[in-house]
Simulated assay, not measured.
Amino acid sequence: MARLPDPVLSFPGGCPDCGRREVVLPPVLPEVGDDFDWDVRDFDGFRLFMLQDLAARFPARTRWTPADLEVMLVELLATQYDKLSDMLDRIAGEFALETARRPETVRRLLKLIGHDVLRRSQDLGLPPFDHAPAPGDLRSDIERLEQYWLDYPDKMDQERLAGPRLIRTQRRMVTLEDHELRLVEHPLVERAHAWSAWGGSWLVVHVAVIAKDRRRLDPPGEYTDALWRDVVDFHREREIGLPDRLAQPSVRAVLTPLVESLRLAGQAVEVADAVEVGVVMRLAVQVSPHHFQSEVRHAVEQALGTGPGGFFEPGRLRFGEDLWASDIVQALMALDGVEHVCLNRFKRLGDRFADQTASGRIALEGLEVAVCDNDPKHPPRGFYRLALHGGRKG
C-alpha cells in the first residue's frame, strides 16, 4: 500500500511566525517490464518460458538437465499452471450456451433465454420423464434430467440447438399469412384463409377455417381420444389455455384461446366457417371387360370420397378454387378397370344454377369450397349419380 509522506515543520531563526512545512516525496517506483507471453496456455509453453527465464538470469550456467532441482520445480509449476489454465477455459466456456459442457449450466442458460427444458420434458413426457422413477430413487426431477444428459450427451446437444430455434420462431399473428399458418398448425384445423376488411372503426382480420372432419365452429364438440390428446399436447406445448373436454367445447371455443394469445394487441380477429358449395354430378363409366362393376364402383366412391386421398377430402380444395371437370375425369381415368368416363351433369346444387358440363368449370370465389359428400342424409352437401357400363356383373 502507498503511504502518504510525513510533513516536517521547521522554524528557521526561532521565529514562531516564520514556520515552513516541508514534505519529502518518495522516489518514483521504477517501471517493471512485462515480458510474459499471455498467450501461453499449456504445459509446454509454461515450461519453455520459465526455462528461458532461468537461462537469462544465469547466463554462466550452460547445462540444464531434467534431474536438476530447478528444472523439476519448473515442471511442477508448469503442471499446476496448465491445470489452472484449463480450469479457466472451462469456467469461461460455461458462460456461453454454445460452449457450456455441464448439464446444470446448459439447463440454466436455456431457461435464461425462455426455454424451460425441465417443464417441457415433464409436460410432453420426454425422457427421462417417460416412465416413473425406480423404487427408492430419491433424486429430484432436476437431478434426473441432468443425470440423463450425462448419460446421453447427444440429447443435451439436441436441446442446446432446439432452444434458441424455438424462442426465435415467429408465432405471433402479424400478417394475414401468419393468421393462416398459426391456425393451420392446430390439430382441429384442416385449412384456413384470412383477409382483412374495414369494420367501421378499424380493420378487422377475418379467418375462415375448414375444421377437422368438416366440423362446424359453434355446435358442441365430440372428439375422439386420439384427436383430443393431440389438442391437449398442442395447447400444453404452447402454454395456451384449453376448455374442459367434459363441457363438450365447440371448435370456436377451443380455437379462441389460441387466437387471443397470438393476435396483436388491439387487432380484432374473427373466425368464421367456410362457405360450402354442394356439387351435383352425373357420371357414366365404361368398365373394362376383365373387371367387375362392383370393384370399379367401390374404387370410384373412394376416389371421389371425403376420406384420406379422396378428391373431396376436407382441406384438399382451397378457398375460392374453381372446380374443373377435367380434374375429376383425370382422377377416375387413373383407376384400374376404367376405360372411359363421361360427365353428363356438372353444376352447383340448386335450380337457379346452370349446368356447367359444356364449360367444364364451376366458378367459386371468396370463402366458397366445393363439397360432394354423396350422403343421402345430407343432400345439400352435394351428391352424384354413377352409371356403370360393360365389365363383369357382380
Rank of each mutant, 00 (worst) to 15 (best):
G391K: 01
A299H: 02
L4W: 08
R245K: 12
A284M: 03
L349W: 07
R107M: 15
A331M: 09
A363C: 08
F353Q: 06
S85T: 12
E270N: 07
A325N: 02
G360F: 07
R90Q: 07
V269F: 10
D42G: 05
P16H: 09
S261T: 14
V369S: 09
R229C: 03
L181V: 10
L181T: 06
P257Q: 04
R168M: 00
R21S: 10
H290Y: 12
I328T: 07
D327C: 13
Q267I: 00
F11D: 09
A284N: 12
G241S: 10
Y223A: 05
F49V: 10
P243H: 11
H115Y: 15
F234G: 02
P153C: 05
R168D: 00
M333P: 02
Q122P: 07
D157Y: 13
Q267M: 05
V189F: 10
Q302C: 09
P257L: 05
W195K: 02
D178L: 00
W64S: 03
A194Y: 03
Y152Q: 11
L25G: 15
E313H: 03
D225R: 04
T306A: 08
E159N: 00
Y384W: 11
A55V: 15
R160K: 00
A208C: 06
L4G: 11
N374G: 06
F43H: 10
H186G: 01
L364S: 01
W195A: 02
A363L: 04
G315S: 08
A132T: 07
L349Y: 13
P30H: 11
M333Y: 09
T169M: 06
C342L: 11
D157E: 15
G394F: 00
D68Y: 05
D351S: 08
L227R: 02
E276G: 10
V338I: 05
E70L: 12
V232T: 04
F43C: 03
L217A: 05
D86G: 15
E143W: 07
Q158E: 15
Q293F: 09
L332C: 04
V207W: 09
H186N: 03
L110D: 01
A354F: 15
A100C: 01
Q158K: 14
V74I: 14
H389P: 04
Q52H: 12
V341Y: 01
K393W: 08
H193I: 05
V8S: 10
A272Y: 15
L264V: 04
L4M: 14
D225Y: 08
E270R: 13
R245Q: 12
E295H: 15
D178C: 04
V277E: 06
V32Y: 12
D322H: 11
R282K: 14
D154F: 08
E295G: 11
P380V: 00
V32Q: 10
R107A: 14
R172F: 00
D230P: 07
R102N: 07
H290N: 09
